[in-house]
Amino acid sequence: MKPFAYAHPGDVAEAVRDVAAEPNAVFLAGGTNLVDHLKLGIATPDLVVDVRTLTSREVTDLPDGGLRLGAASTNSEVAADRRVRERYPVLAQALLAGATGQLRNMATTGGNPLQRTRCVYFGDVTTPCNKREPGSGCSAVGGYTRYLAVLGVPAALPDPTAPETCIATHPSDMAVALAALDAQVQVLGPAGTRTIPFGELHRLVGDDPSTDTTLEHGELITSIDLPPLPAGTRSSYRKVRDRASYAYALVSVAAVVSGDDVRIALGGVAHKPWRATRAEELLRGRPLTDHAVRAAMDAELAGAQPQPGVGGGNGFKIPLAARTVVATLRELTSEATR
């Protein structure tokens, strides 16, 4: 671990100034991802700016009927909040499907969506990785791809030597729910505040695998707002994993059904939480029969690229994603008719 300076400023404005002024500075909140990466040599900051006690830890009602989650609220606290449990079960379930009780007591609203990929090659500094070391290549192509992407990747075996190649997935469960809820991210940066629609917070790889989000250097998430949902909205989160608990998603589904409108986000399949917009369009206003959902998901997944590799590859995720969405929507609609 490289030495670094530590700062614990008096308020968020000062924290933002501190980070903005030092190109190799990072924010520290719950620490569950950053400290891990400091030890592995993945993160090598010169300055760590502690914001854990600076942003709000509260969950507050918004005038429009939504909820504001302070950036320092912990995953446990948000999942336990009665309003979240009653109005946004998809978020409570996603949080509770993530990590463990101990980690949820540490991880924060602001930090969780910014956690980085769990690709094993990203986590191993002895192997090339375009995300960790731009231009070094992608070790994951043809390697251990079980937890890696099938959507938003250009081919079944993209060129591992190309600088833009990356088949990483985003590991957060919370982020998948927030994507389906069309949450709004409140940000404070050197240039002031701005609001980012959650769907625009994370990037696809594009030509820059090293950048996960659209946040500028020095920008800090201060809260995440949940918009109000129409009366009668039903939502849920379904995570499919290799262990019954304490495992990243192979595939996860966040589904929100309000009247004719259905919103579907997928986890474990892409570089960002994947809104299944094509399937949503096909399903809008139609009865959510297994058959219709299946057809819509087939259309959504038509461009999916299975990644072969050691241990069997990840092509199974394509049928698994479709089947999981079918099962999730079936359960949501059967609840409604019960």
Binding site: T127, R146, D242, R243
Partner: peptide, 25 residues
């Protein structure tokens, strides 16, 4: 232990990726 024969090591060499059963299993 998924062995990555291209580089000669276990790819999933930690306890997050090498799964041993947890209590819920």
């Amino acid at each position: 232990s998924v062995f990555d024969t291209r580089i000669g090591q276990v790819a999933n060499h930690d306890l997050a990726e090498y799964h041993i059963s947890v209590n819920a299993d």
